[in-house]
Amino acid sequence: MSRKATCADNAAMENFFGLLKQEMYYGEELTSYEALKKKIEKYIDYYNNDRIKQKLAGMSPVKYRTHASQLAA
């Protein structure tokens, strides 16, 4: 962590929350906290296991980490 009020500390989470709101939340009408909680959990699973990212050579984050650890071994 760096000094107080340095925005770089929160950059990764701010980016994730922005994507979450764009891809999952906007335009949806949720009826309860439990419905929102389930939808967020489902999105996090999708984001880590299925969502393909160009920066990760066209792989999901979990597949990329697995691939990188196999190359390092």
Rank of each mutant, 00 (worst) to 15 (best):
residue 70 Q to G: 06
residue 4 K to W: 01
residue 34 E to S: 08
residue 70 Q to D: 12
residue 25 Y to Q: 07
residue 54 Q to A: 14
residue 3 R to V: 08
residue 47 Y to H: 06
residue 37 K to R: 15
residue 49 N to S: 06
residue 9 D to E: 13
residue 53 K to G: 07
residue 36 L to W: 06
residue 30 L to V: 09
residue 13 M to V: 11
residue 28 E to S: 10
residue 15 N to Y: 05
residue 62 V to F: 02
residue 34 E to H: 08
residue 35 A to N: 06
residue 17 F to K: 04
residue 69 S to P: 04
residue 3 R to L: 10
residue 59 M to N: 02
residue 58 G to C: 02
residue 17 F to D: 03
residue 43 Y to N: 04
residue 12 A to V: 15
residue 7 C to E: 09
residue 45 D to G: 11
residue 21 K to G: 01
residue 47 Y to V: 02
residue 51 R to L: 03
residue 9 D to Q: 10
residue 53 K to D: 12
residue 24 M to S: 10
residue 32 S to Q: 02
residue 59 M to W: 03
residue 45 D to Y: 09
residue 42 K to Y: 08
residue 5 A to E: 11
residue 6 T to K: 15
residue 69 S to H: 13
residue 54 Q to G: 10
residue 49 N to V: 03
residue 11 A to Q: 04
residue 45 D to T: 10
residue 10 N to C: 07
residue 69 S to M: 13
residue 55 K to L: 11
residue 72 A to W: 09
residue 1 M to N: 12
residue 28 E to C: 14
residue 63 K to G: 01
residue 11 A to Y: 01
residue 69 S to Y: 14
residue 44 I to F: 05
residue 18 G to V: 07
residue 26 Y to H: 09
residue 12 A to C: 11
residue 63 K to I: 05
residue 65 R to Y: 07
residue 15 N to G: 05
residue 36 L to P: 00
residue 4 K to V: 03
residue 20 L to N: 01
residue 53 K to P: 05
residue 61 P to E: 00
residue 56 L to W: 01
residue 66 T to Q: 11
residue 18 G to H: 09
residue 1 M to P: 04
residue 59 M to I: 06
residue 53 K to A: 08
residue 32 S to I: 05
residue 41 E to H: 09
residue 9 D to V: 09
residue 57 A to G: 11
residue 48 N to G: 01
residue 45 D to I: 04
residue 56 L to R: 02
residue 40 I to H: 05
residue 38 K to N: 14
residue 47 Y to D: 00
residue 44 I to K: 07
residue 54 Q to K: 12
residue 52 I to H: 01
residue 70 Q to I: 09
residue 2 S to V: 11
residue 23 E to M: 05
residue 22 Q to L: 15
residue 19 L to S: 12
residue 61 P to T: 00
residue 58 G to R: 00
residue 57 A to H: 12
residue 60 S to C: 04
residue 34 E to L: 03
residue 40 I to R: 06
residue 31 T to L: 11
residue 29 E to A: 15
residue 65 R to A: 06
residue 33 Y to F: 15
residue 52 I to L: 04
residue 72 A to M: 11
residue 29 E to N: 14
residue 37 K to M: 11
residue 3 R to E: 08
residue 58 G to T: 03
residue 10 N to D: 08
residue 55 K to M: 08
residue 64 Y to N: 00
residue 68 A to K: 15
residue 42 K to S: 12
residue 52 I to Q: 00
residue 5 A to I: 13
residue 72 A to S: 12
residue 57 A to D: 12
residue 16 F to Q: 04
residue 33 Y to L: 14
residue 41 E to I: 03
residue 2 S to R: 11
residue 8 A to V: 13
residue 69 S to Q: 15
residue 62 V to W: 02
residue 57 A to N: 15
residue 50 D to Q: 09
residue 26 Y to D: 10
residue 1 M to V: 12
residue 1 M to Y: 09
residue 17 F to W: 14
residue 62 V to Y: 01
residue 68 A to M: 15
residue 16 F to V: 07
residue 64 Y to R: 01
residue 2 S to E: 08
residue 28 E to P: 02
residue 11 A to C: 05
residue 30 L to H: 08
residue 48 N to I: 03
residue 48 N to K: 07
residue 26 Y to R: 10
residue 21 K to M: 09
residue 37 K to F: 13
